[in-house]
Computed example of a mutant assay.
Amino acid sequence: MLYQSEFITRLEAGLRSVLPAWGLSDATEVSLLTVSENATFLARDPARPAPVVLRVHRPNYHTRDEIASELAWIEALRDAGSVETPALIPTTAGGYITAFEDGSETRHVVGFAFMEGSEPDADAGLIPGFVTLGEISARLHQHTERWQRPPGFTRKTWDFETAFGPAPHWGLWRDALGLTPAGADTLQSALDRLATRLDAYGKASDRFGLVHADLRLANLLARADGLGVIDFDDCGYSWFMYDFAAAISFLELAPIVPDLQAAWLDGYQRVRALGADDIAMLPDFILFRRILLTAWIASHRETETAHDAGLEAYTDGTVRLARTYLAAT
């Protein structure tokens, strides 16, 4: 239903019912920005100097406490100057979260200040930006190493079990579109190898902690004066090096990836030191993310993102990447 006009109209109606929570008037113009799982709207009130971005959360994914925890980290990161990300817009009641009922489901809504910028293009001009992204990633990881979580802080974990176990966050990889028996055997062999290597790498606090977990191009805002980061909706506990793998989402087989990796590592190590074992694990996390996205596409095949990725073609690429991984590790 995500791309049916009736669905968007229904969400917009529900969103309009809570506009007063941000002091937005009846004259507010509401327009859809993006919809994948969450739906994001731009609200322009002629009585306000700047628009507000309102995110309507999908149900049955994050609890209200998990959403509040995401917002707590965003506030802490902004206070520390660790990353340029939009400010939270409080409600008139003083909190950051409101909700409306959508049939039998509750839709939580949060508000952000509008930030200028555009998604970077996936071409050679991306390489300098990945130096900056490496620096940003390192600052995020530095922050999470020292930040004292507030009481009740809770976010999902992105590890082997939650990605590929019996109850994965994003669906079963064996449901991948167009996956053949031979392809499934290849992915299983790669996952067996991956599990062994991740277990050996471990989850020490200098390599596993709170990460953005979705630093892909769609969540970056390039501007002449810097690089903004948006959408912490998937932030959670994982390996720090996973953030690079997420950054090259849907580009994993592109010839530019080695240059992007070198640029990201250059920027990262200007801020935070890495060991040779950290760098050696990057192919593992690229495969981890690729198979995770392949499962996501299968469980979200109706979305524009899944169609842009190529549906069955993306699965074929995942199998090719797994073969390369098995040959190299």
Rank of each mutant, 00 (worst) to 15 (best):
L2S: 07
D26S: 13
N38C: 10
V53W: 06
V56W: 09
E70F: 04
L71S: 01
I89M: 13
A93L: 03
T98L: 10
G103Q: 07
T106H: 03
T106C: 04
V110M: 05
A113W: 01
A113K: 06
F114S: 02
P120T: 08
D121T: 08
F130P: 00
V131G: 02
S137D: 02
L140G: 05
Q142I: 07
R146T: 15
R149P: 01
P150H: 01
P151V: 00
R155F: 11
R155C: 06
T162Y: 12
T162R: 15
P166T: 09
P166N: 09
R174Q: 15
A176F: 10
A176G: 14
G183I: 11
D185Y: 06
Q188V: 10
S189R: 15
D192C: 04
T196C: 12
R207A: 11
L215G: 03
A218F: 06
L220I: 10
C235H: 12
S238V: 01
Y242E: 09
A247F: 04
L251W: 03
E252G: 12
A254F: 06
A262Q: 07
R272V: 11
D278S: 03
A295P: 00
W296P: 05
A298V: 14
A298Y: 04
S299P: 15
H300V: 06
A306H: 03
A309W: 02
L311I: 00
L311D: 03
L321C: 03
